[in-house]
Design a protein around this nucleic acid. Structure first.
Lengths: 173, 173, 173, 173
DNA sequence: GATGAATGAGTTTTCATTCAT
DNA sequence: TATGAATGAAAACTCATTCAT
């Protein structure tokens, strides 16, 4: 991955995230990345190719984030870290994550399956802790965590720390 | 609002919801509505004007849905009806609501403020019921309800009835 | 000529004069005239028909203006009145005349022939006064008078009275 | 300025001059220039941008034409060359100049100020020659010269040489 | 006579993509 | 690799004109 290639990806993340995939022109990406428009096509084949490169990255990053949780044995820690997940996103990564959320709506292919490992880990954790309905608890929490992520990225939540503690309390953490 | 105007709106809701706003051409809308392309512009000024007409409708419908909840005195009923909200959406309205969610990502202007009346009503309800932190409980539930709506519309939830009961149980309802 | 017909003509004169014939839409004319767009076509057949109605009026008005000059016997008066012609245009008629000048450039059909009676009258006048080359003097003055009209309408001339006297002096008037 | 860019400008001059700016489609320009329509927009931004490129050229050419006159010291020569100006326009440049005159009517921005250097030079010349009212003489001649140019371009003048001599005589040249 | 909804052809403009250099 | 001129197809939008009421 050359420097210019990296520039293109970063520019695309920024613009796709701001305007959406369909509403972003390759011309705009080229300008933002300070490269020629042709270069985008040399490196990524076409606009969709560029998108897929970004999606791949997104999946990779998500995997990296879920990995320590999924591998965790202590059930309380699994739940705690899941809850903390959206609150730990760094400001500089907002654009990247915004784009991932946006793509969930813009692309059909974008599936919920990526979250399955987390749901499974949570199910096990809730079971270990003797919850009545571990499967549903896991589903419930996963959906909720995504929603919190969305709210944070959109700036609806100005009391993050408070909310986080509130949720942790709900699970006696 | 003439019949053709209504056709245009319905066609636009369908296509915007399926493909997204930017990825839907006015030509496609005109064909779907069986109307000349020019008519879209005569009635709505431009593509964005059509979008705003749809948004206005969405806000109106949302208001209608929240109204009976916000007006409710019995705190238990306020919470119960809030939880039931996303599960009561009719299949035939899925496209309409999908679009509303999609637009939350596609438009900057799309604000969270529409939910404030509901948050307030819930806060009051939780307070009446003696919850420790009514404000946060309300915020928490609202975010969750939106997330459930999203999951239902996307087809992630095939166990709706089960989940609904599960949540109602959490609030002793 | 009904009132609405008159409104249409006036609106068209205004807009054609401001923006040119091709750049003025019938829709804009209808709005300016506060009538329906269809009415323009009922009365004038098509956009060009409206234009020709205006042109006809223009030719009529020009004829009315030239008539007393062409009929004049006193050669000095013929020349004097010709020179005074553009300076006598009333402010409220500027739009009308601007349009006439504009159309000279926008339409092929718009011919110089309307000025022939004036050229002839001037030729006779200059001959009577013993000028060397009455034919050329007439041509010269006619061209000049049109140019002065143009300059006045465009607002290039802020010293009208002075210029008028200056020209009159040239012809010992 | 690539070759195709030049083709576009030439085609636009031709068609704008023949049909007027508003009545000329970019499609027609592209065909005349044997170029894709998109290229017009890539190079000039929009139709108006193309127009402005042409106007800039026109101003430049005018400056070049006035320069030797404005720089001239001999007052008789200043006046003589001013008078000869419109008669010296080459047939092959008619389209270009026709367009410039046309634009004076079609555009608001098109100002008379370009002629100020010539008016000043003429004022000085007439003063040197002891004319009573050099300022007015200069204004008078400038307006006249523009009018002659207009008449020539429109084909109203079939006796150019004769008229030129006639005017030169008026100034004892 | 008058309206205004509706149309279809055309206009300006955008955009992903190709290609010679 | 990298550029940027060039393209063709499609997009948004305009407009003169028709027609039912």
């Amino acid at each position: 991955m050359t420097e210019k290639q990296e520039n293109i990806i970063q520019a695309a993340i920024k613009l796709f995230s701001e305007r959406g995939y369909a509403a972003t022109s390759t011309n705009a990406i080229a300008k933002e990345a300070a490269v020629s428009e042709g270069l985008i096509f040399r490196h990524f084949g076409n606009k969709e190719g560029l998108l897929h490169a970004i999606i791949k990255t997104g999946e990779e990053v998500l995997k990296q984030m879920l990995f320590p949780i999924v591998m965790e044995n202590d059930p309380k820690l699994v739940i705690k870290r899941t809850i903390e997940l959206p609150f730990d996103v760094k400001k500089e990564d907002y654009e990247f994550w915004k784009l991932q959320f946006k793509l969930k709506w813009e692309l059909k292919e974008y599936s919920h399956e990526k979250m399955f490992p987390l749901i499974n880990a949570l199910t096990v954790a809730f079971k270990k802790l003797g919850y009545d309905n571990p499967q549903l608890e896991a589903q419930y929490l996963t959906i909720y965590i995504e929603a919190i992520g969305e709210a944070i990225l959109k700036g609806y939540l100005n009391n993050g720390a408070e909310i986080k503690q509130f949720i942790l309390n709900k699970y006696d953490l």
